[in-house]
Write a protein that binds this DNA or RNA. Structure first.
Lengths: 131, 131
DNA sequence: TTAAACCTTCCAGCAGGTGGAAGGTCAAGC
DNA sequence: GCTTGACCTTCCACCTGCTGGAAGGTTTAA
């Protein structure tokens, strides 16, 4: 199977598939003409990676999950721990963004938004001594 | 004023201050020995940028806000629009992350997390035909 | 034979800096 | 006068996760 067929099957681009290869995530064979040839194991790994990335895992986390997928001796506790950790990170990010949204909301409320230059938003960003 | 003093005053690192200069956000003078010399305008601009970044604006947005800060003829409607737009983006991000958190939570719940290799998380990532 | 649609490698760039190397300068203490 | 340490300078590379494009080779079909 050539790369564009694999791209179609996995939802990844050919570029991304080659990139994952440079990272050592897959290792397809080569045909006589130099073209990469993919087997079902490669396709499965790439599908796994695509889903892990889509779920929100980083590439390094996805690599770890792929390692666990490929390891029949894995302990599910290990997998769960990884996901739990990710969940905590995501919750932290949500809290961070919610605080940001509140700040922005306060700014929008405080600014009259007309043709005049006076602007509470600019004032807040300019002056730390603001009440 | 030398760069490390400015770093202290603004909460930015010297590296970042130099980086902002390469972006054209500030343009400090040079002393005879080649050292950068900062005036109060530079410090104010950098403080403005630091606050804009801390509030969550990207560098490009911060640059726009700085432009508006420096422009006495600005219309506050313009500023407000920019912030409103950012707020919408942040809310989108929050929704995205909340969906992610739900997926992850579902995974954590579904995985027994013991010494056995069987793991619902791995299964979900491996198999799209999962119910 | 030629055109389109593949495939290959390599180089550069996005955000927003950060780290480090290699070197010049300045102030204080001996 | 010399050394030490804390400054300062420039430049280049790296981080994430790709993406775009250039320049070229291959295959397929008309």
């Amino acid at each position: 199977m050539n790369i564009s067929e694999v791209a179609r099957l996995t939802g990844l681009t050919s570029k991304t598939i080659r990139y994952y290869e440079t990272l050592g995530l897959i290792d397809p064979d080569r045909a006589a003409n130099g073209y990469r040839t993919y087997g079902s194991e490669d396709v499965e790994a790439l599908q796994f990676l695509q889903r892990a990335r889509a779920t929100g895992f980083g590439l390094d986390e996805s690599r770890q999950l792929l390692g666990l997928y490929r390891e029949p001796q894995r302990h599910s506790a290990h997998v769960r721990e990884l996901v739990q950790h990710k969940l905590e990170q995501v919750n932290e990010q949500i809290n961070h963004l919610q605080a940001m949204a509140q700040t922005l909301q306060g700014m929008v409320k405080a600014c009259r938004g007309d043709d005049a230059p006076d602007c509470a938003i600019i004032d807040r960003l300019a002056d730390s001594e603001r009440k």
